[in-house]
Protein backbone atom coordinates (compact mmCIF):
# COMPACT_ATOMS: atom_id res chain seq x y z
CA UNK A 1 0.00 0.00 0.00
CA UNK A 2 1.35 3.40 -0.84
CA UNK A 3 0.26 6.46 1.07
CA UNK A 4 -1.10 9.43 -0.84
CA UNK A 5 1.80 11.57 0.44
CA UNK A 6 4.29 9.16 -1.18
CA UNK A 7 2.59 9.67 -4.53
CA UNK A 8 2.03 13.43 -4.43
CA UNK A 9 5.70 14.31 -4.66
CA UNK A 10 7.01 16.84 -7.20
CA UNK A 11 8.87 14.15 -9.13
CA UNK A 12 5.60 12.29 -9.74
CA UNK A 13 3.69 15.29 -11.07
CA UNK A 14 2.18 14.49 -14.48
CA UNK A 15 -0.49 17.17 -14.89
CA UNK A 16 -0.89 20.63 -13.46
CA UNK A 17 -2.33 24.05 -14.24
CA UNK A 18 -0.27 25.74 -16.94
CA UNK A 19 1.70 28.73 -15.64
CA UNK A 20 0.24 30.69 -18.57
CA UNK A 21 -2.98 30.87 -16.56
CA UNK A 22 -3.02 33.55 -13.87
CA UNK A 23 -4.13 32.80 -10.31
CA UNK A 24 -7.34 34.80 -10.81
CA UNK A 25 -10.47 32.78 -10.18
CA UNK A 26 -12.39 32.58 -13.45
CA UNK A 27 -15.78 34.28 -13.35
CA UNK A 28 -17.33 31.56 -15.51
CA UNK A 29 -20.19 29.43 -14.25
CA UNK A 30 -19.18 26.00 -12.91
CA UNK A 31 -18.51 23.62 -15.81
CA UNK A 32 -18.35 26.29 -18.53
CA UNK A 33 -16.44 25.28 -21.68
CA UNK A 34 -14.70 28.66 -21.80
CA UNK A 35 -12.48 27.57 -18.88
CA UNK A 36 -11.34 24.41 -20.63
CA UNK A 37 -10.50 26.25 -23.84
CA UNK A 38 -8.63 29.03 -22.02
CA UNK A 39 -6.46 26.36 -20.49
CA UNK A 40 -5.78 24.74 -23.87
CA UNK A 41 -4.76 28.04 -25.43
CA UNK A 42 -2.45 28.60 -22.44
CA UNK A 43 -0.92 25.13 -22.71
CA UNK A 44 -0.27 25.60 -26.43
CA UNK A 45 1.37 28.99 -25.89
CA UNK A 46 3.47 27.44 -23.11
CA UNK A 47 4.54 24.49 -25.27
CA UNK A 48 5.39 26.67 -28.27
CA UNK A 49 7.26 28.99 -25.90
CA UNK A 50 5.64 32.11 -27.37
CA UNK A 51 4.34 33.79 -24.22
CA UNK A 52 5.89 37.15 -25.13
CA UNK A 53 4.92 36.87 -28.80
CA UNK A 54 1.24 35.96 -28.46
CA UNK A 55 -1.40 38.69 -28.60
CA UNK A 56 -5.04 37.84 -27.97
CA UNK A 57 -8.10 39.87 -28.89
CA UNK A 58 -11.02 39.20 -26.58
CA UNK A 59 -14.64 39.60 -27.63
CA UNK A 60 -17.83 40.86 -26.10
CA UNK A 61 -19.58 37.94 -24.45
CA UNK A 62 -18.82 35.87 -21.37
CA UNK A 63 -15.17 35.65 -22.42
CA UNK A 64 -14.74 39.45 -22.56
CA UNK A 65 -12.48 39.15 -19.51
CA UNK A 66 -10.21 36.48 -21.02
CA UNK A 67 -7.33 38.93 -20.51
CA UNK A 68 -7.63 38.40 -16.77
CA UNK A 69 -6.81 34.72 -17.11
CA UNK A 70 -4.13 34.22 -19.76
CA UNK A 71 -0.84 35.90 -18.95
CA UNK A 72 -0.06 37.37 -22.38
CA UNK A 73 -0.71 40.67 -24.16
CA UNK A 74 -4.33 41.37 -25.02
CA UNK A 75 -6.58 43.88 -26.70
CA UNK A 76 -10.34 43.93 -26.16
CA UNK A 77 -12.52 44.62 -29.18
CA UNK A 78 -16.00 46.05 -29.64
CA UNK A 79 -18.69 43.40 -30.15
CA UNK A 80 -17.83 41.23 -33.16
CA UNK A 81 -14.89 43.35 -34.24
CA UNK A 82 -12.07 41.17 -32.90
CA UNK A 83 -11.02 39.99 -36.39
CA UNK A 84 -10.67 43.63 -37.53
CA UNK A 85 -8.59 44.53 -34.46
CA UNK A 86 -6.51 41.38 -34.93
CA UNK A 87 -5.95 42.37 -38.57
CA UNK A 88 -4.43 45.66 -37.51
CA UNK A 89 -2.24 44.12 -34.83
CA UNK A 90 -0.95 41.32 -37.02
CA UNK A 91 -0.17 43.67 -39.92
CA UNK A 92 1.77 46.00 -37.63
CA UNK A 93 3.48 43.09 -35.85
CA UNK A 94 3.77 40.36 -38.49
CA UNK A 95 6.17 38.38 -36.29
CA UNK A 96 3.62 38.01 -33.47
CA UNK A 97 1.08 35.25 -32.92
CA UNK A 98 -2.24 37.09 -33.07
CA UNK A 99 -5.50 35.36 -32.26
CA UNK A 100 -9.11 36.20 -31.57
CA UNK A 101 -11.28 34.39 -29.05
CA UNK A 102 -14.99 34.77 -29.87
CA UNK A 103 -18.41 33.40 -29.01
CA UNK A 104 -21.12 32.53 -31.49
CA UNK A 105 -23.14 35.68 -30.93
CA UNK A 106 -20.03 37.80 -31.27
CA UNK A 107 -18.63 36.01 -34.33
CA UNK A 108 -21.66 34.77 -36.28
CA UNK A 109 -24.15 37.53 -35.51
CA UNK A 110 -22.94 41.08 -34.95
CA UNK A 111 -19.43 40.29 -36.20
CA UNK A 112 -20.41 38.27 -39.26
CA UNK A 113 -18.95 40.80 -41.71
CA UNK A 114 -15.66 41.15 -39.85
CA UNK A 115 -14.96 37.41 -39.67
CA UNK A 116 -15.98 36.88 -43.31
CA UNK A 117 -13.65 39.54 -44.62
CA UNK A 118 -10.74 38.69 -42.33
CA UNK A 119 -10.97 35.09 -43.55
CA UNK A 120 -11.44 36.23 -47.14
CA UNK A 121 -8.32 38.39 -46.91
CA UNK A 122 -6.51 35.46 -45.35
CA UNK A 123 -5.19 37.47 -42.43
CA UNK A 124 -2.37 35.59 -40.74
CA UNK A 125 -4.29 35.07 -37.50
CA UNK A 126 -5.87 32.30 -35.43
CA UNK A 127 -9.57 32.40 -34.60
CA UNK A 128 -10.86 30.42 -31.62
CA UNK A 129 -14.65 30.22 -31.95
CA UNK A 130 -16.72 28.98 -29.00
CA UNK A 131 -20.08 27.79 -30.28
CA UNK A 132 -22.46 27.26 -27.36
CA UNK A 133 -25.55 27.95 -29.46
CA UNK A 134 -26.68 30.85 -27.30
CA UNK A 135 -25.90 34.35 -26.07
CA UNK A 136 -24.54 33.29 -22.69
CA UNK A 137 -23.52 36.62 -21.23
CA UNK A 138 -26.80 38.47 -21.73
CA UNK A 139 -29.04 35.77 -20.32
CA UNK A 140 -29.51 33.09 -22.93
CA UNK A 141 -31.01 34.65 -26.06
CA UNK A 142 -31.09 32.91 -29.43
CA UNK A 143 -27.85 33.00 -31.42
CA UNK A 144 -27.38 32.31 -35.15
CA UNK A 145 -26.15 28.84 -34.15
CA UNK A 146 -29.15 28.01 -31.92
CA UNK A 147 -30.65 24.69 -33.03
CA UNK A 148 -34.15 24.31 -34.48
CA UNK A 149 -36.54 23.69 -31.62
CA UNK A 150 -34.04 24.90 -29.02
CA UNK A 151 -35.65 26.88 -26.22
CA UNK A 152 -33.94 30.17 -25.38
CA UNK A 153 -35.05 33.41 -23.72
CA UNK A 154 -36.09 34.79 -27.12
CA UNK A 155 -37.43 31.51 -28.55
CA UNK A 156 -39.52 30.33 -25.58
CA UNK A 157 -41.41 27.83 -27.78
CA UNK A 158 -38.25 26.62 -29.49
CA UNK A 159 -36.49 28.05 -32.55
CA UNK A 160 -38.97 28.07 -35.43
CA UNK A 161 -37.36 28.41 -38.86
CA UNK A 162 -40.35 30.33 -40.23
CA UNK A 163 -39.98 32.96 -37.56
CA UNK A 164 -36.31 32.73 -36.52
CA UNK A 165 -34.48 31.33 -39.54
CA UNK A 166 -32.14 28.35 -39.62
CA UNK A 167 -29.02 27.53 -37.58
CA UNK A 168 -25.95 28.92 -39.32
CA UNK A 169 -22.98 26.66 -40.03
CA UNK A 170 -20.61 29.59 -40.18
CA UNK A 171 -17.54 27.37 -39.99
CA UNK A 172 -18.46 25.57 -43.23
CA UNK A 173 -19.08 28.97 -44.86
CA UNK A 174 -15.64 30.25 -43.83
CA UNK A 175 -14.01 27.10 -45.17
CA UNK A 176 -15.24 28.17 -48.64
CA UNK A 177 -13.11 31.31 -48.53
CA UNK A 178 -9.69 31.13 -50.16
CA UNK A 179 -7.97 32.92 -47.26
CA UNK A 180 -8.55 30.15 -44.72
CA UNK A 181 -5.83 27.49 -44.56
CA UNK A 182 -7.13 25.38 -41.69
CA UNK A 183 -10.74 25.07 -40.57
CA UNK A 184 -11.71 22.52 -37.95
CA UNK A 185 -14.49 21.78 -35.49
CA UNK A 186 -13.68 20.22 -32.11
CA UNK A 187 -15.22 19.80 -28.66
CA UNK A 188 -13.81 19.75 -25.12
CA UNK A 189 -16.18 17.47 -23.24
CA UNK A 190 -14.11 14.32 -22.75
CA UNK A 191 -10.38 13.73 -22.09
CA UNK A 192 -9.94 12.50 -25.68
CA UNK A 193 -11.78 15.48 -27.12
CA UNK A 194 -9.71 17.85 -25.00
CA UNK A 195 -6.49 16.32 -26.35
CA UNK A 196 -7.72 16.63 -29.95
CA UNK A 197 -8.87 20.21 -29.45
CA UNK A 198 -5.47 21.11 -28.06
CA UNK A 199 -3.73 19.58 -31.07
CA UNK A 200 -5.98 21.62 -33.36
CA UNK A 201 -5.20 24.85 -31.50
CA UNK A 202 -1.50 24.04 -31.63
CA UNK A 203 -1.62 23.41 -35.35
CA UNK A 204 -3.44 26.73 -35.83
CA UNK A 205 -0.70 28.65 -34.00
CA UNK A 206 1.99 26.79 -35.95
CA UNK A 207 0.26 27.90 -39.17
CA UNK A 208 0.81 31.50 -38.07
CA UNK A 209 4.54 30.83 -37.93
CA UNK A 210 4.33 29.41 -41.47
CA UNK A 211 2.29 32.47 -42.59
CA UNK A 212 -0.33 30.23 -44.17
CA UNK A 213 -3.35 32.49 -43.67
CA UNK A 214 -6.32 32.29 -41.36
CA UNK A 215 -6.67 29.24 -39.10
CA UNK A 216 -10.14 28.78 -37.69
CA UNK A 217 -10.86 26.45 -34.75
CA UNK A 218 -14.48 26.04 -33.69
CA UNK A 219 -15.08 24.41 -30.32
CA UNK A 220 -18.63 23.17 -29.85
CA UNK A 221 -19.27 23.88 -26.19
CA UNK A 222 -21.91 24.18 -23.52
CA UNK A 223 -23.55 27.06 -21.72
CA UNK A 224 -25.13 25.11 -18.92
CA UNK A 225 -26.56 28.25 -17.28
CA UNK A 226 -28.18 29.45 -20.49
CA UNK A 227 -29.37 25.97 -21.35
CA UNK A 228 -30.62 25.52 -17.79
CA UNK A 229 -28.95 22.16 -17.22
CA UNK A 230 -26.26 20.76 -14.97
CA UNK A 231 -22.79 20.80 -16.54
CA UNK A 232 -22.84 17.01 -16.94
CA UNK A 233 -26.32 17.01 -18.53
CA UNK A 234 -25.29 19.88 -20.80
CA UNK A 235 -22.42 17.81 -22.20
CA UNK A 236 -24.84 14.94 -22.88
CA UNK A 237 -27.33 17.30 -24.55
CA UNK A 238 -24.51 18.76 -26.64
CA UNK A 239 -23.39 15.35 -27.86
CA UNK A 240 -26.95 14.29 -28.72
CA UNK A 241 -28.18 17.53 -30.29
CA UNK A 242 -25.27 19.73 -31.36
CA UNK A 243 -22.90 17.14 -32.82
CA UNK A 244 -25.39 15.95 -35.51
CA UNK A 245 -25.78 19.54 -36.75
CA UNK A 246 -22.16 20.56 -36.10
CA UNK A 247 -20.12 17.42 -36.82
CA UNK A 248 -16.60 17.30 -35.39
CA UNK A 249 -13.46 17.04 -37.49
CA UNK A 250 -11.29 18.92 -39.95
CA UNK A 251 -13.21 20.73 -42.68
CA UNK A 252 -10.19 22.18 -44.51
CA UNK A 253 -6.44 21.69 -44.13
CA UNK A 254 -4.14 23.00 -46.84
Amino acid sequence: MSHIQDITKPEHLVYRKTPLLTDNIMHYCPGCTHGVVHKLVGEVIEELNIQDQAIGVSPVGCSVLAYNYLDIDWAQAAHGRAPAVATGISRLHPEKYVFTYQGDGDLASIGCAEIMHACSRGENIVVIFINNAIYGMTGGQMAPTTLLGQVTATTPYGRDPKLNGFPMKITELLAQLDGTCYVTRQSADTPGAVRKAKNAIKKAFQNTRLRKGTSFVEIVGTCNSGWKMTPVDANTWMRENMFPKYPLGDIKDI
Binding site: M1, I7, V14, R16, I25, Y28, V36, K39, D189, V194
Partner: peptide, 25 residues
Protein backbone atom coordinates in the same frame (compact mmCIF):
# COMPACT_ATOMS: atom_id res chain seq x y z
CA UNK B 1 -11.64 6.02 -3.52
CA UNK B 2 -7.97 7.01 -3.62
CA UNK B 3 -6.70 3.44 -3.98
CA UNK B 4 -8.22 3.23 -7.47
CA UNK B 5 -6.44 6.25 -8.94
CA UNK B 6 -4.15 5.33 -11.84
CA UNK B 7 -2.86 8.84 -12.50
CA UNK B 8 -4.36 9.03 -15.98
CA UNK B 9 -5.09 12.80 -15.71
CA UNK B 10 -8.52 12.50 -17.34
CA UNK B 11 -9.97 14.55 -14.49
CA UNK B 12 -7.38 17.28 -14.91
CA UNK B 13 -7.90 17.50 -18.66
CA UNK B 14 -11.62 18.24 -18.41
CA UNK B 15 -11.50 20.57 -15.37
CA UNK B 16 -12.58 24.04 -16.57
CA UNK B 17 -10.95 25.77 -13.64
CA UNK B 18 -7.61 23.93 -13.81
CA UNK B 19 -7.69 23.12 -10.10
CA UNK B 20 -6.53 19.49 -10.30
CA UNK B 21 -2.89 18.39 -10.12
CA UNK B 22 -2.23 14.77 -11.00
CA UNK B 23 0.60 12.57 -9.71
CA UNK B 24 1.64 9.17 -10.95
CA UNK B 25 4.32 6.75 -9.79
Amino acid sequence: NPDDCIGCASCGLVCPDSVISVYKM
